[in-house]
């Protein structure tokens, strides 16, 4: 299965669209209910970050099929202000907004692979992968 979808994230209803698209693909890939819930929750956190901290952006949703294993890879990109201190941003409870500060650190625990690249003044790219 080779699938790739790009969704732009400009409003809080786009965050819902991202959740639904990720859910649908996770179901098609045969993810268990718990893994569906984890990847959809992680997608929701990162989509909201893209919207609120990145000033909007995109997510690229990709189905991975490496023969023996299948998974989902999501790449969130924005051209926002970037994150000055990544180590701090990944700490539980760290927040600049009105949230609980669990978005980044919590999402990292929900997925198998987590990668973040951020440059101040240029933007942020976060890639997460969940294997079936």
């Amino acid at each position: 299965m080779q699938k790739n979808e790009v969704i732009s994230i400009r409003s809080s209803s786009d965050v819902v669209l991202v959740r639904q698209a990720v859910r649908q693909l996770a179901v098609e890939l045969g993810f268990s209910l718990i893994n569906q819930t984890k990847i959809v929750t992680g997608a929701s956190e990162l989509a909201r970050n893209t919207l609120e901290h990145g000033g909007g952006g995109t997510v690229n949703i990709e189905a991975l099929d490496e023969g023996t294993r299948r998974g989902l890879r999501l790449i969130f990109e924005d051209s926002g202000p970037g994150i000055p201190d990544l180590e701090l941003a990944l700490k539980d409870g760290f927040t600049t907004g009105g949230g609980l500060g669990m978005g980044l650190s919590g999402t990292k625990r929900l997925v198998n692979e987590f990668d973040i690249v951020s440059r101040v003044g240029e933007g942020t790219r976060i890639t997460i992968t969940k294997w079936k």
Partner: peptide, 10 residues
């Protein structure tokens, strides 16, 4: 599944 995810999320 929601409860499990919530706890892992922190």
């Amino acid at each position: 599944a929601v409860a499990i995810t919530l706890v892992e999320l922190g």
